[in-house]
Structures are given as C-alpha cells and as structure tokens.
Design a binder for these strands. Structure first.
Lengths: 195, 195
DNA sequence: CTCCAATCGCAACGGGTGTAGCTTTAGTGT
DNA sequence: ACACTAAAGCTACACCCGTTGCGATTGGAG
C-alpha cells in the first residue's frame, strides 16, 4: 500500500467511508454492479476524490481485499485431521453460500480475474489463508496420522480446489457432501504419500 | 440458441464473421479488451447489428463458447489410468499456457463469472468435457486398476480442479509437476475408494 | 497561532458505449 | 420473375464514465 502522508483526520475518515461503501455495494450488487460513482455517493465522498486515490473499481476492490486479508479465521480443531480438513473445506463452501459474505467473496475472485492489481492482492490473501489452514495438516503429522514428508499447503490446496472449481469454473452447485468428499480425497492422497 | 429464421445466406455469414472476429479479438486483447465496437469493425458487420443479435460482450462470448463446446479434444490413451489422467490434466494446463488458446479460454472463464448466460454455456461445456474425459477412468475400471464403485466424472473434477484453482483463484503459476501431482492425488483417492 | 502543503470538493467536459428511428438489402415463397 | 418481409445498414443522439483545472478546506509543523 502507498504511504499515507496524513494518516489522521479527514483522509482516514474518507478512507474508511469508502471502504465500507465498497463492501456494502459489493454485497448488494456484486462485482458487475460496482461503480466508482455509486461508491462515491454512498460514502459521501466526492467522485473525483475516489478516482484520485483508488484509480478505478479494481483499486477499490484491491484495497478492500487487503483489509479482508488481515482478518484471521477460525481454524477448526476437532482432534483428527479428517475432521479438521473437512472443517476447513466446509468453511470455504459455506462462506460462499452466505448471503452477505458470498457476493463479496465472489466479487473478489471475479475482480482478480481482470485486474493484475486485484490478482496480486488475492494471491497474497490465499498465501495467508493457506499458511493458516496448513496448521491442521501439520497437527495431523505430529499425531502420526500423516507421513512427515507431506506438503501441508499442497494438501490444503487440493482439498479446497474442487469447491472453487465447481463454483467459479464449472458453475455447478456444491453440496456439503461434495465438500466432505473433496477433503477426504486430499487426505487419502496425503496418506498415500502423493502430496 | 435462438431459432434462426433465415439460416441460409447473409444471416449465417454475419454470424460466422462475428464469431471469428470475437475469437480473434479475444486472442489479441483478452476479455478486458473485448468491445462490441471492435468486433463489429473487424467483422465488417455494423455495430447496431451486433448489439441487436448478441446484446453485449457477454453474449458474444457465450456464442463463441457454444461453438467451442462442439469441438472434441484428444483423449489420451497411454495404456494406464495414471498416464491417461496425467495426460488429461496436462492438456488442460498446457491449453492455458498456449499463447493463442490461453487468452481465449481464460476469457471464457472470466466472462462466465459475470454473465449468467456465459455461465450456462460454460457449464454445458464442462459437462461435455467431463463426459469425454471420464472415459479414461472407465477404461481404468475395466482394466481392474480402479474399484468399480468409482465416480468417473468426480475423479476428473478432482484431478483438474487444482490447476484451475491455481490459475484463476489463487493466481499461482502451475508447473507440469503440479499438474502431475494433481492427477496422482485424484488417482490415489480413487484407489482408496473415496471418489 | 500561523503558515503551507496535502487533500478534497466542485463544475465542466471529452470520449466511448449502447439505443432509436428509419432506410436499404437480400432471402424466401408463390 | 415478383412480391413480401426479416434482417442488416445508417445517422444521430442520449447517457455514463473517467478526467482536468481550479478553488476551498484541513491537518500538521514550527
């Protein structure tokens, strides 16, 4: 992020207002319906100001994304790798199903597909998420449930990938059972020493 | 697709010209750079005509997508499930790496994320692809390499999902080794009876 | 308290996208 | 051949997005 030369006062207020408005607009109208003008009006900040500081719609999203990347999320701890991994995947699935979070998250993915800036932000976001989630795999290794050679982050990737694939590429629905199955498949591969 | 009342002659020519132009523009400038005007100019068809028949950019993509869905693709036949499945995944990976096909395919995915029309078209496309690819799994079952309870299409999904996930969601690079590993993981899960 | 630079608000405008009304062209049936 | 009509071409325009130049405001340093 750029260095804010005047972090206190109006600049900060403007920034917060715009961020909030971006998330609200995203939740209401999705990525397609997100325009700089609407965000400006909703936030009470002048259009020109938003253009100057954020550049365009993708800039708004990239900024909101960095905000979201900072927030931690609840890593499950059920006592077994199987339960934990299922929990992680289910968390992803249900997140996109949530009527409030879903559209926002989807918008992030859509935006990253068109804007290098948003893509970089999303990449960093998943980097962080993978690191956090990999913890459930590492715990499994410590318990002796998985071979020590396992690539923890890769297990997470393989586990969640089918959910994203169904949602954003093949455009199929994703049931809880589908999510469980994806987690189980990653686990089976890990146990077999493939990952 | 809609019923063409005058399938022969000019209408058909216009349609072909626009489809060709769409693909060409897509290959050159990607989804972001695709505009109705450019397609109109390149195809020699008037702007208003394109708007009337295709409505907008997403309509153009959905149409081109249906065209692409019809084309078959080379299913590998190496003699083992492992080789075949790796071949399928590698075909996907290298397809997106190809300087000509890559941008077009990516555009399809991006467009489907914003347009219900394109989403439906892409869904149908993958439905067909999965059916074709599942054949390598079914052959494996016949050879006794996999349990008969296996869900052939699900194996395909799990095998290719990590490639798409890396490319379009996490925005990571995908090496050939990554592709192989994804195929092997799906196979291990299938052998373990999870899929 | 005062000054000054950073930031924001404002009004006007240029460019491009999508639309409307009408005319012209060319398939299709008799 | 001829008439009929669906479909494409054409012109003009309304609208919206993003930009620019300038003046007003505000936060922070001394």
């Amino acid at each position: 992020m750029e260095v804010t030369k005047r972090p206190g006062g109006r600049s900060a207020r403007v920034r917060d207002a715009v961020r909030k408005a971006t998330l609200a607009e995203l939740a209401e109208h999705g990525f397609r319906g997100l325009t700089v003008e609407n965000v400006a009006e909703r936030s009470g900040v002048h259009k020109t100001t938003v253009y100057r500081r954020w550049g365009n719609v993708e800039g708004l999203i990239a900024d909101a994304l960095e905000l979201a990347a900072g927030e931690p999320w609840p890593i499950p701890d059920t006592g077994t790798v199987e339960g934990d991994l299922r929990g992680v995947v289910e968390l992803v699935r249900s997140g996109f199903e949530d009527p409030e979070l879903g559209p926002v998250s989807s918008a992030f993915v859509a935006a990253a597909m068109q804007s290098p800036e948003a893509a970089r932000a999303l990449h960093a976001f998943f980097e962080a998420r993978h690191d956090q989630s990999a913890q459930v795999v590492r715990r499994g290794v410590e318990r002796g449930e998985l071979p020590v050679t396992v690539d923890a982050r890769e297990v997470i990737r393989v586990a969640v990938a089918p959910v994203y694939y169904r949602l954003f590429v093949a455009h199929e629905s994703v049931s809880r059972r589908d999510a469980d199955r994806a987690a189980d498949a990653a686990l089976a591969a890990a146990r077999a020493g493939v990952l």
